[in-house]
Nucleic acid binder design. Sequence first.
DNA 1: AACAGTACCGGTAACGTTACCAATCACAAT
DNA 2: ATTGTGATTGGTAACGTTACCGGTACTGTT
Lengths: 333, 333
Amino acid sequence: MKKFVTIRDVANAAGVSINTVSRALNDKPDVNEETKEKVLKVARELGYVRDATALSLRYGLTRVIGVIFEDSSNPFFSEVFKGIEMKAREHNFNVILMNTEKDYDIEEDAIKTMISRRVDGLIITPTQERFEDIESLANLNIPTIILGVHFKELKLPEVHTDDVTGGFLATDYLIKKGRKRIVLLNGLSYKSVAQMRFEGYVNALRDNGIKYLDELVYEIPEGVESAYNKTKELLLSGLRFDGMFCFNDIFAIGAIEALKEFGKRIPEDVSVVGYDDISYAKYISPSLTTVAIDKILEGQTAFELLLESVKSKAKMTAKEIVLDVKLIERKSA
Amino acid sequence: MKKFVTIRDVANAAGVSINTVSRALNDKPDVNEETKEKVLKVARELGYVRDATALSLRYGLTRVIGVIFEDSSNPFFSEVFKGIEMKAREHNFNVILMNTEKDYDIEEDAIKTMISRRVDGLIITPTQERFEDIESLANLNIPTIILGVHFKELKLPEVHTDDVTGGFLATDYLIKKGRKRIVLLNGLSYKSVAQMRFEGYVNALRDNGIKYLDELVYEIPEGVESAYNKTKELLLSGLRFDGMFCFNDIFAIGAIEALKEFGKRIPEDVSVVGYDDISYAKYISPSLTTVAIDKILEGQTAFELLLESVKSKAKMTAKEIVLDVKLIERKSA
DNA sequence: AACAGTACCGGTAACGTTACCAATCACAAT
DNA sequence: ATTGTGATTGGTAACGTTACCGGTACTGTT
């Protein structure tokens, strides 16, 4: 039923061999100008479209890259993806996108699928729980970029943001605004990103001569609810604090929700700084002071680095591209 | 350099023919149990992974579907995509995602690419400017689902939400809250979605005996800024209004921003209702009353309808699946 | 001993494409 | 007339896989 026009159909219709059609179509030499025009005309009339699956088999190259995210509906990832897709299109690549839902087994499966699809390269944000699946990619020498995460254990190219500086900027800013007891609402500590932001937090305290207190640092799982609940718990416990540095804007939104519920004024009673600068950060109330990262750029950079790796015949090596971050001052701190 | 283990490598290593390997791998009969186990063992040791590109060529089926959106970073689309990807994975399909950036030429190009990739099916949200490109899909009889849009001109399966009812619910709610002069901040009218919401708006006014006024209805392009600017313009012009029904939550966010800037209290001075219930709708201030649609479900439904079309050998026919909407009451109205 | 039936295995073609080589032809140079 | 040269064309194999068919060897039945 679904039936496509092949090079053979064109050849028959034009009364030449498939070789001549191929040459005409690919603008190769060794084909008479008249013949060529005739072939192109026939091809157009018949609605011929080159079969990419055949080319993939022929050349062992698919011009497809795989992207594996935790959750592509997360506004952070969806913007990064946009950057990737943009650059990919520019270079005539297509992108297969898969979600892991933060599940290692699904991640492993997704990687197998990508290998089976013979993608020319892969951009992945690993769950960081385990990493044998990613090692298998390295062994097969499938060009791979680790995105948004620093992976000590693997010698692979990485693109991520300067989160130590990000953590520093946020904390330092809060301190400069006179805050002394700053809660860090961090992500789970097995994540390198959480570790880096923590490091920035500690650095800022040290540089400003403020004592680090364990009772102000919390690690919570992803999600608005999670941050909302933890903040509520802290408020109920009677913990004193006048500043909050949140692992991401989603956490900040949850925290602000809870703070408001307890009648805390923001930023007067508690100043809040987020991270990521998701597009809604400026529209929540109060508008969110946050550490901005250029997500589109991060995606574009990842693709370009991947392309480099795809083109080069060399073995992959560790390479770290660290993107700048900057603090966006708004009303919440 | 990038070199995969083929069925032939496995055959050599196991000392059998490629046919036997194929049978063993595919759990086909006519292969001795011992041989089979040996083959499977060798395949495992060698790290054999089936080459999907070869299968695609062999069977003329790729188990890949294409998704073409205006902008996958839009939270509406990114959630719909999640629903699609979820169901696709369940059925061992993969998804290629492309963005058109609302440009007809890019859309046309994306469709060509998808045809060239020999996708088994396509889910698309057309720009609605023109539609010859989509007709070409219909002619090739590539299973296609139109998503989120009603396309009078084409006889293709569609999945969208009940936007006439949505428009009615929003407007009726504002009226019931005592609002008399309700601005409709609509999307551009060539879009079927905008037409439908407009229809709902008009119906609600009529049913409540309120006169329709042209001076309260505006059509603006996408984007927060767009809504922010138009609202500011209306306020500066001195137009009186006590309610706003916004085409989507993004518009509502922009409108609220402008209203606040002019010292309008929400909902006391102006009540605002949005559309889509994007995940941040509840966290902006005041939390947004909006018409909710189940975006994940919309994606899942689209995939399932597509799958039906892929499996059936019949020609595609018009078929409309209309999903329910509901009003979510929060603080902005 | 002869035959049929069955279990197992391998050879080949095909999917659509292009690279490589060989063939043909016209024409010019010897 | 012969040879060489260049322009143009076609034949074939190969990418990895599986369907189809044909073969071999063993079993059991007569």
